[in-house]
């Protein structure tokens, strides 16, 4: 088996990298809202970066294990504890049958990821284990986890050699600059409208879910109205309906849409959007496609380096500071250090 959900938290779902190849049939890809934290969690437990893991939102779950394995928690800091003691984040930790991993309320950011060595044992639907809440399919019976749900580990690896540690990214402030590529319908706004979009602050409203993030701020002026003949959509598309208030379309967005799209968030910055919460502020900055591709390559490079570093044999590390004793034997004094290694 794996774990039993003692408390599901606010919104905990099983995600993998998403369901691709079915957008032409109207199927949204789903997948994690913060790809960087999601992949990091998987690498820490020696999984493929796209393996199935848990995404927790705002207030995390409490899980009781009934099988030994290794887990890692990344993303928003929900002050995780293991059997009541603080559980380090961005670090693989051994969990034993009977242990309880509990996440609290997010102190910074919005979404945490919990990965388990060998991934989660739920069926693939259209090649993916990602939960699509809107379409009620994938993950655990197409829905968020509920109290009592038991989820198995697919290939647990309790013997995974530790330590495996990744750097903890500094939490982002209340205001974030999110980079975008203008278009595809930037020509349907006035110059003033484009200036407004690129210069004014936009506040994350309460209307923020896995489908999209509605922002509030200065009205963005269209040259006509906000309607187009419906066309295809990508994750990160920023729709501006006739109201002039932008909506960033996210993992569970629809596949097509009939509103003007002023710009698209670059792939490397999407994980940061996924960690914004109500009241946070976003400012948009336009970049070129070339810059966006460089940043995307850097995003991958960073994770590849982490993987390479984790794959290198780790020297055994002390888990507690050394304790020094002075011992006197037959009148001679010795200094003795006791160090517990992993």
């Amino acid at each position: 088996m794996g774990f039993i959900t003692e408390n599901p938290g606010v919104l905990t779902t099983i995600q993998d990298e998403g369901r691709y190849g079915y957008e032409q049939f109207g199927m949204s890809p789903a997948g994690p809202m913060d790809l960087r934290a999601f992949r990091t969690a998987n690498l820490l437990v020696d999984n493929d970066p796209g393996e199935s893991a848990l995404e927790a939102t705002a207030l995390g779950p409490a899980l009781r294990f009934d099988q030994d394995n290794v887990a890692a928690v990344t993303g928003a800091d929900m002050a995780p504890t293991l059997n009541g003691r603080p559980c380090p984040m961005y670090q693989a930790v051994a969990v034993k049958a009977g242990d309880v991993l509990r996440l609290g309320a997010a102190k910074s950011g919005l979404r945490s990821y919990i990965a388990f060595a060998g991934g989660l044992d739920v069926p693939q639907v259209m090649g993916s284990r990602a939960t699509a809440l809107q379409n009620q399919v994938g993950g655990y019976q197409g829905r968020r986890l509920a109290k009592g749900d038991a989820v198995g580990f697919r290939a647990p690896n309790p013997g995974l050699a530790l330590p495996r540690v990744a750097p903890v990214p500094p939490p982002e402030g209340k205001e974030a600059v999110i980079r975008v590529i203008l278009g595809p319908q930037d020509d349907m706004f006035t110059q003033e409208g484009l200036n407004t979009f690129l210069s004014q602050p936009y506040t994350v409203s309460k209307d923020f879910d896995r489908m999209g993030c509605r922002l509030e701020g200065a009205v963005i002026a269209h040259s006509g109205d906000g309607n187009i003949i419906s066309d295809g959509m990508v994750t990160g598309a920023i729709q501006v309906p006739t109201s002039g208030q932008p909506i960033i379309m996210l993992a569970e967005r629809q596949t097509v849409g009939g509103y003007t799209k002023i710009a698209t968030v670059i792939s490397a910055d999407l994980p940061r959007v996924g960690q914004r919460k109500t009241g946070d502020v976003i400012r948009f900055q336009a970049v070129t496609v070339e810059e966006a591709h460089q940043l995307w390559r850097a995003f991958h490079q960073e994770l590849e380096e982490l993987k390479a570093q984790l794959d290198r044999p780790q020297p055994s590390q002390p888990v507690q500071p050394a304790i020094t004793y002075r011992v006197t034997v037959n009148g001679r004094s010795y200094q003795v250090q006791v160090v517990r290694h992993t």
């Binding site: 190849g21 957008e23 032409q24 003949i229 419906s230 295809g232 995307w296």
Partner: peptide
């Protein structure tokens, strides 16, 4: 080149920037 999404008057062409030569 990734998935192609046809709509009324447009074709959306997904691509993987790490594998595609734009």
């Amino acid at each position: 080149m990734g998935e192609l999404v046809p709509t009324y008057r447009a074709l959306l062409i997904h691509y993987d920037p790490l594998r595609a030569d734009l």
